[in-house]
Amino acid sequence: MGWRSVIKRFFVLACSLTLPLASAAAQQATVHLEPQQLHGSRPIEKQTEAAVIRDYLAAWESMQSALNLNQPTLLDTNFVGPALDKLTGTIGDQASLGIHVRYQERSHDLQFVFYSPEGSSIQLIDTVEYDEQVLDHDKVLATKPLRQRYLVVLTPSEVRWRVRLFQADTQ
């Protein structure tokens, strides 16, 4: 193998790695914030609102990576309690079935609906548009565009808000 061939292979490899990343970056989800509907609960300060949105979107990123790579430890930073238990269980299911799933969100439409008086929980509704792609190893079994309303409860930990309840609202 000559050095030209090595460079050519390296270039192909680099493109194959960077293009999906560039594509993912190009597909950065849009985030829209609806007016709060707190039904008389404690108002949310701007700083808290920004922190919760930042941490919630980070939770989505970690969930995408965890479910794509079947790596439950990626969830630990952003999820806690039942949400962590259920997503960890799903990763276990996926691994035993030999599949992994790519979730690529296109947009989040967020609305805060509750902030507990003592500040120990925040509830929001997220209407998410995303693609769910199921893969058996590298073979794509199906790709489905979805629009779903999620009920999310976040609770504060030492340095960030973590997702405690994460459930599609099917009722």
Binding site: M63, L67, K86, L87, G89, T90, D93, Q94, L97, I99, V101, Y103, E132, V134, L141, F166, Q167, A168
Partner: peptide, 11 residues
């Protein structure tokens, strides 16, 4: 037949 979502996956 697969049923797959963030909450669970069965086959």
């Amino acid at each position: 037949l697969y049923i797959v979502g963030p909450a669970q996956a069965v086959r």
